[in-house]
Design a protein around this nucleic acid. Structure first.
Lengths: 121, 121
DNA sequence: ATTATAGTTGAATAATTGTTCAACTATAGA
DNA sequence: TCTATAGTTGAACAATTATTCAACTATAAT
């Protein structure tokens, strides 16, 4: 049996009603993308740790690096990503840049996931 | 000024008290890793869409593929990842495999993030 | 038995991404 | 002014990963 290249949708629907029902409820593409993007930003353990740390204290780059056992450069790169996503904010005091969480929502999200982890082993 | 290769921690702490205070509150490494892993799984728009779809209806692979405009293969690969993370479960009915969400927690997490997105533009 | 379809899977490919390195800016102090 | 330090940044590298392709299994129907 020779098969042609698989198309995105080579078959009829199994259940057309269900598919179009869900399709209607589906959020717009951009919303889905932003949703995924937000989760993705939280989905790296360096950033996860940074966010947790900042949920406890306002910290400078150096102290975050010390805390995580990472280089300032690595931390700075990650902080930029968090800054771009508006998850952290900063203030300058002389040479030192202090970072803190910008968004309370993230703490909720974080704790919700933490509960999930801690309950489900 | 010649600089040697940057060490993980080349300097003294800026604020030793804060650092050790946060260090004490820090969750264990494995917890942080699982946290990041969980977020990472949600951090891909194909999987995000699958999870959203399954939060509405139990669906077979074919219908998910139709819904997302993806190949069955791509969907199946992603479903395996979700299965491994125990986020979805399935039941077989003849040739057809029906997937559904395994974990209510994920819906909470999802909706929490959705609120965040929709509020913060 | 044969044929068709739902779904899975391994390998390959292309794209993304986290960290390191090196160089840079800016601020503080001597 | 000169030196040291906090932090940022671009390029390069290595690792991870999403999708595609092709081949496969299993079930159903003729």
């Amino acid at each position: 049996m020779r098969r042609v290249k698989e198309e995105v949708c080579e078959i009829a629907y199994i259940d057309k009603r269900k598919v179009s029902s869900v399709k209607k409820k589906m959020k717009p593409e951009t919303t889905m993308q932003r949703l995924a993007e937000t989760f993705k930003v939280l989905g790296d353990s360096t950033r996860t740790k940074i966010i947790f740390a900042l949920s406890q204290e306002e910290l400078c780059v150096c102290d975050i690096a010390n805390l995580l056992g990472a280089t300032k450069s690595a931390v700075s790169h990650q902080l930029r990503i968090l800054r771009n996503m508006r998850l952290v904010k900063y203030r300058k005091e002389g040479k030192i840049v202090f970072y803190s969480l910008d968004d309370e929502h993230i703490t909720n999200l974080f704790n919700e996931c933490l509960r999930h982890i801690e309950e489900n082993g």
